[in-house]
């Protein structure tokens, strides 16, 4: 034991310098070659900067809603509801979300609401919604903004992100980019 103590301490310190220091600096150096120098992907619109893959809260009826969030899209304390599937309180919350959605979207049938619009995400910062989740909101937004439904369908189509290589994963829409495009639609 005794003769292992000094080598153990010295080896740990060498590892500290190498893995916490040198490794970190190499990655940090490589980060300077990325688009935003490692400060996160951003989109700029009308002079304002947003994080591209960080979801934002959209509850205003003139925008496409983003998904419910257990942390209200607080990007300094991400988190989820952690509710179990049989929790009565949780199921009541989902029911309330469905009812609220129907009030704000008259003329929409319950069956048309996809579950991602009434369940909260894992991070509470989900940037995306599914394509049906965007479609089901077209009628409301068309009425409020006075834009033809066809234009909105077109907007959804052009903002749909296909699965990876068209083969792997989900089809989705980045809500922030969709709403920026919506604001720019004149």
């Amino acid at each position: 034991m005794k003769k292992n103590i000094i080598p153990a301490i010295r080896l740990t310190l060498v590892c500290f310098v190498f893995f916490s220091g040198i490794y970190t600096l190499v990655v940090l150096g490589a980060a300077q070659f990325t688009a935003n120098k490692g400060k996160g992907d951003v989109v700029v619109s009308n002079g304002k900067t947003y994080f591209a893959n960080l979801g934002q809260k959209f509850t205003n009826d003139k925008y496409f809603y983003s998904r419910p969030s257990a942390v209200d899209y607080n990007a300094a304390a991400a988190g989820a509801s952690n509710k179990g599937p049989s929790n009565p309180e949780y199921l009541k919350t989902v029911q309330t979300r469905i009812d609220t959605f129907l009030v704000h979207n008259p003329g929409i049938k319950k069956e048309a609401i996809p579950s991602d619009l009434v369940t909260s995400s894992g991070s509470g910062l989900d940037p995306d919604i599914s394509v049906p989740a965007a479609r089901v909101q077209v009628k409301r937004i068309a009425a409020i903004r006075g834009i033809g439904g066809g234009n909105l369908e077109q907007l959804i189509l052009s903002n749909t992100e296909k699965p990876l290589l068209g083969l792997f994963g989900t089809e989705k829409i980045n809500v922030l980019k969709l709403n920026i495009a919506l604001d720019n639609l004149k």
């Binding site: 199921l91 469905i98 609401i113 996809p114 579950s115 369940t119």
Partner: peptide
């Protein structure tokens, strides 16, 4: 998906999405 949510009459084409991210599925 969640049978208790299916009973509420909404669509669950993406499956059980509570606590999950759309980009991952």
């Amino acid at each position: 998906g969640n049978p208790a949510i299916a009973k509420m009459g909404i669509g669950q084409t993406m499956g059980n999405m509570e606590g999950k991210e759309v980009r991952i599925g």
